[in-house]
Computed example of a mutant assay.
Amino acid sequence: MTKAEILKLLVLIESVYTNFVTKDEIVLFWFKLGPYLDCEKVFGKVRSHIRKSPYPPSVEDLIDFSGDMLMPSLSYAAGERAFRGSIQDSISAWMREYSIR
């Protein structure tokens, strides 16, 4: 997934679930894991979740770490590292990149 697709995903979730607030840590997490994910499968999962649940989806609801959702180049171990890794990017960097100014 590209950064633009990730932002579309988060905007979709936030627009459907009014109690969901996109925090900086969430954006940075998705930016870090996004390149390894299949966009169509993630959006399919979020659409399915929206139809079924009145609560916002968790990461585990949208990503299957067993390997079905991950791109072939990403092993399970690498997915776990990306999932549990530390956030090294500054929050202001992504805000500057995607601000409407």
Rank of each mutant, 00 (worst) to 15 (best):
M1L: 14
M1K: 08
T2V: 06
T2R: 12
T2I: 07
K3W: 11
K3R: 15
A4P: 00
E5N: 12
I6P: 00
L7M: 09
L7K: 04
K8D: 06
L9V: 05
L9A: 07
V11E: 15
V11G: 06
L12Q: 13
I13R: 03
I13F: 05
I13G: 04
E14A: 14
E14H: 09
S15N: 15
S15F: 06
S15C: 07
N19V: 08
F20C: 03
F20Y: 15
I26A: 05
V27T: 02
V27H: 01
L28R: 05
L28M: 04
F29D: 03
W30G: 03
W30P: 01
F31S: 01
F31D: 01
K32D: 08
L33N: 01
P35G: 03
Y36F: 14
L37R: 03
D38Q: 10
D38G: 03
C39D: 13
E40I: 13
K41G: 01
F43M: 15
K45F: 12
K45L: 12
V46H: 09
R47N: 14
R47S: 14
S48N: 14
H49S: 01
H49G: 02
I50Q: 04
I50E: 03
R51P: 00
R51A: 12
K52P: 01
K52G: 02
K52A: 08
K52E: 05
S53K: 11
P54L: 10
P56Q: 02
P57C: 05
S58A: 11
V59E: 13
E60H: 10
E60V: 07
D61F: 08
I63V: 15
I63G: 02
I63Q: 04
I63R: 01
F65N: 00
F65V: 04
S66K: 14
S66V: 07
G67T: 13
M69K: 07
M69S: 15
M69E: 09
L70S: 06
M71A: 10
M71I: 11
P72A: 09
P72V: 09
L74G: 03
L74T: 15
S75N: 06
S75A: 12
S75E: 11
Y76K: 14
A77H: 13
A77V: 13
A77W: 10
A77P: 02
A78E: 15
A78W: 11
G79R: 12
G79S: 14
G79L: 11
E80A: 13
E80Y: 12
R81C: 10
R84L: 12
R84D: 02
R84F: 09
R84W: 07
G85S: 08
G85I: 01
S86N: 06
Q88V: 05
D89V: 08
D89N: 04
D89T: 08
S90N: 07
I91Y: 09
S92M: 09
A93E: 07
M95C: 02
M95Q: 11
E97R: 08
E97I: 00
E97Y: 02
Y98K: 00
S99V: 03
I100K: 08
I100W: 09
I100N: 08
R101A: 10
R101Q: 10
